[in-house]
């Protein structure tokens, strides 16, 4: 029970919600699983997004459009999510248990990215864009969004857009048990043209304070012939400065990256060449 919360608002439109957020000392509420009981009186109210009907999943020629209050369960079971975008479903399935996936929303996962969030690495690899309304309104590239977290307290994430992609992708989460905070997430997207890597996006998360793209590794791949030797070398040499904590040391996480990046590159390459995912 969060005693400091004295107001629970249920706006019926986005505009109403934004006005409430501007008043301060309130925060958005969707699934509610990210709410941390606060001993301080800083948070007094919640603005529930449940009445805004931000639950649509849409697909068109440009790609996939996932509204913020779509739950991880609905995302993971969306039959129209295919191709490389499947890794987002994979990330959603790993992120939490069956019952929690019925509450955790995509928007919540993105708006309050914790170090252990599983969606951001997949979104980074898929070159997602995040649409925001309110004080920090705009359409943000995932890379930019997760690097600096532009949201102020008076903004709402409304939609996540994924471009339609031709290549192949892979995602891997390393954790001790199925339902566990990750030690490392790796997500890879590759496109191959004329036998060479045309596009490479590599993202790592959970072993870092913020999920991010491994740009040096990407650059080492683009334009090259994707031999196993190259993939191995790129994985080994990828600059990576991971967290050290009670669950795993930094050197070990680095080792995990080397191993799993190589495996994900191999898998993404297969998918890119095969045209299927």
């Amino acid at each position: 029970m969060f005693k400091n919360i004295t107001h629970f608002h249920r706006p019926r439109t986005l505009d109403e919600a934004l006005i409430l957020l501007k008043k301060g000392k309130v925060r958005c509420h969707a699934g509610g699983t990210g709410l941390i009981p606060s001993g301080s009186d800083a948070l007094e109210g919640l603005v529930d997004l449940g009445g805004l009907d931000l639950r649509k999943l849409r697909r068109d020629d440009e790609g996939f459009h996932i509204e913020a209050c779509v739950t991880l369960a609905d995302l993971a079971s969306w039959p129209r999510l295919d191709g490389p975008a499947c890794i987002l479903a994979q990330a959603a399935l790993c992120a939490a248990s069956t019952s929690l996936r019925n509450r955790i929303t995509v928007g919540g996962s993105v708006a309050q990215p914790r170090p252990w969030s599983d969606l951001p690495p997949a979104l980074l690899a898929l070159d997602a864009s995040i649409e925001v309304v309110g004080g920090a309104a705009g359409l943000y590239e995932a890379r930019d969004f997760f690097a600096r977290n532009p949201l102020d307290g008076a903004s709402i994430v409304t939609t996540i857009h994924l471009p339609a992609l031709p290549g192949g992708a892979a995602f891997h989460k390393v954790s001790r048990t199925r339902f566990d905070y990750s030690l490392l997430d790796v997500a890879v997207y590759l496109e191959v043209q004329d036998g060479r890597i045309a596009t490479a996006r590599i993202a790592a998360g959970c072993a870092l304070p913020r999920a991010k793209r491994l740009t040096e590794a990407e650059e080492a791949l683009v334009g090259r012939d994707p031999t196993p030797e190259l993939l191995r070398r790129v994985a080994e040499e990828a600059p990576f400065d991971p967290l050290n904590d009670m669950r795993a040391s930094a050197p070990y996480r680095k080792r995990l990256l080397v191993v799993y990046l190589q495996r994900c590159l191999t898998e993404a390459l297969e998918a890119a060449k095969g045209g299927t995912n």
């Binding site: 248990s97 001790r176 048990t177 199925r178 339902f179 566990d180 905070y181």
Partner: peptide
Amino acid sequence: GRYKIYTAA
């Protein structure tokens, strides 16, 4: 969440 025991999965 941080002291792990197994589930059926």
